[in-house]
Nucleic acid binder design. Structure first.
Lengths: 136, 136
DNA sequence: GGGCTTTTGCAAATGATTTGCAATATCAGT
DNA sequence: ACTGATATTGCAAATCATTTGCAAAAGCCC
């Protein structure tokens, strides 16, 4: 199984800004917010406006290339590629750890059976205290 | 196991508005937003202001009596008692169905083992198409 | 019942996100 | 490569959910 190369959806134009946003999201280790993406792009010397960041995130989310989520006690949305949508958050230090091999898949069948839904996606957020903070 | 009667946390006062908000949340079938709570209270003849609703939701969330969540494509927060925090959402009609006996519990151990986190809470949101909408 | 403190309502402030519009960039067809 | 048609961008202004300041009202401990 090859890692799927991220491509701009059919019908949309390939712009410098759009590609740069996708690259930032590819390189991000966990979900980040619009402002962070904007600043990172500025740091990288990409000339872009915050509204362009928002507009692209909206489009990418609608197209399913990006997943939007909200974290407890935060008022802004975060964005990430789908493989980073399930994560653990440390309540003490805020550290975020991605959950790989999401356990949810094993329960898809059970949920389908019980509720009759045809499942298209999910998002899981787990709160807790990370090993480092437990020591303190 | 008795159903735990909802009580206002120690140190807070028992006010008409606060109790009414809790009652609305108890009777809600799934997570609802601040505006909906506000309107429902007004319908019930409870005189309350929207900011009081927000202030109480904030306090109740902080105290853990209420869980805040965001739904895909929605810009406002929703609130629910903890037993209604995991749900299925139909992408077509918007129907929300609570997941009882959350499968997540079975994976808590696995997550603890793999990541070393001490887990305190979680929230699961699943998207799909409900049985009725599948027929159409 | 009084006084101390929390809570409320209102209006104004905040802050993330969205939008209108004119300028610019992309891309398909030539 | 050139050009026109259309998507995209940047900027500033607008939105809209949520928060906050403040004075009045309500709860609660003694």
């Amino acid at each position: 199984m090859e890692k799927q190369k991220l491509a701009i959806p059919k019908g949309y134009r390939k712009t410098r800004q759009r590609e740069a946003i996708l690259k930032v999201l590819e390189q991000a280790e966990y979900p980040i917010n619009a402002e962070q993406i904007f600043m990172e792009l500025r740091n990288r010397g990409i000339d872009i406006s915050l509204s362009t960041v928002y507009r692209n995130l909206e489009m990418l989310t609608k197209e399913g290339l990006v997943v939007k989520s909200y974290m407890m006690n935060e008022d802004k949305a975060r964005f990430a590629l789908p493989d980073k949508k399930n994560y653990l958050v440390c309540e003490k230090c805020g550290k975020i750890v991605i959950i790989d091999n999401c356990p949810f898949d094993k329960f898809k069948e059970e949920l389908i059976e019980v509720h009759g839904f045809e499942i298209t996606g999910h998002s899981i957020e787990v709160y807790g205290v990370c090993p480092e903070c437990q020591k303190k």
